[in-house]
Design a protein around this nucleic acid. Structure first.
Lengths: 155, 155
DNA sequence: ACTAAATGGTTGAAGCATCAAGTTATCCGA
DNA sequence: TCGGATAACTTGATGCTTCAACCATTTAGT
């Protein structure tokens, strides 16, 4: 399958370059950047950790680990969820938002340079449309992010 | 950019699932599997390490680290390159080939289940075609795999 | 022929992701 | 209302990737 091979090459070559750029220019890891983006788009710039992890496509465990740094830096704050004592809310601070705004233009430019400058608008749209059902299916199987939740079938 | 967001989601959700499957069913890491595939397609099942790394889309350093395990298991052998005393040749052994053949069908099935079952043949082809120029560009910039080779511009 | 630069490959440390197991809180069935 | 199952989140260990620095060999310039 040529498409699969292309995807693997794309991921293994383009992603490291884009992530390196993000780290060198803005001191951000990819997971941190995604956390910022998701939070900035949330109402009140707040989200439950579970929802944040899901929207950012990372595992709860990874979220906890990455969040530690962001909280230490004062870019994200953690509040208790008033309605559920198990849950916590993450909130993007002003400082965090400034950091995101500083990084976004350069990051977008890198993504364009490495990938989308080589595609026509029509091709970009074709990719987005083709992937939509795959994304839907993936989001319907959240256990892919947290294999622990995979319950073994009864024999 | 919807296409970019889709790609990120695809990679962060689908790849871990596919890699987990490969590891649990066949005891192989993704990088090892790619090394096997590339070697099995090479003439004489042999390749210089540099060429192998490039064809498998991994950095030379990563190749060295992963190769250690494969050599210890007797699935790959390292020979000196007769024409260049700096270089080495990696060769896939019978044992390695058997392992690849055992893993391939299941791996292909997983990739299909997670991704391509949700796409029409036409969509798969559209993705492959759209990505071709991007892949070409990426392969023309091999320093993306080995940032050390990036020489800083003179001011 | 001699040296400087480039190529091929390796190494060890540092940092990140993953996993399994843990804690606390909520839900749901009897 | 009691108790087990599930949900939300955290933790620490393990293993992989990355990075910068390194050695050996080859190439190229003079």
């Amino acid at each position: 399958m040529a498409a699969w091979r292309s995807l693997v090459t794309l991921v293994q070559r383009a992603f490291p370059e884009i992530e390196r750029d993000l780290r060198l220019n803005d001191g951000l890891q990819p997971a941190q950047y995604q956390i910022f983006v998701v939070l900035s788009e949330a109402p009140g710039r707040r989200l439950r950790l579970t929802d944040l992890a899901c929207a950012a496509d990372i595992s709860p465990s990874r979220l906890t680990h990455r969040l530690r740094t962001l909280v230490d830096r004062g870019e994200v704050e953690i509040h208790p969820d008033p309605g559920d004592k198990r849950a916590k809310l993450a909130e993007l601070t002003k400082k965090g938002q400034r950091r995101l705004e500083a990084a976004a233009p350069g990051h977008a430019a890198t993504v364009r340079r490495v990938i989308f400058d080589h595609l026509t608008d029509q091709q970009s749209r074709a990719i987005a449309e083709a992937l939509a059902p795959v994304i839907d299916s993936l989001c319907a199987h959240p256990e892919y992010l947290n294999p622990q939740d995979t319950v073994s079938e009864p024999t």
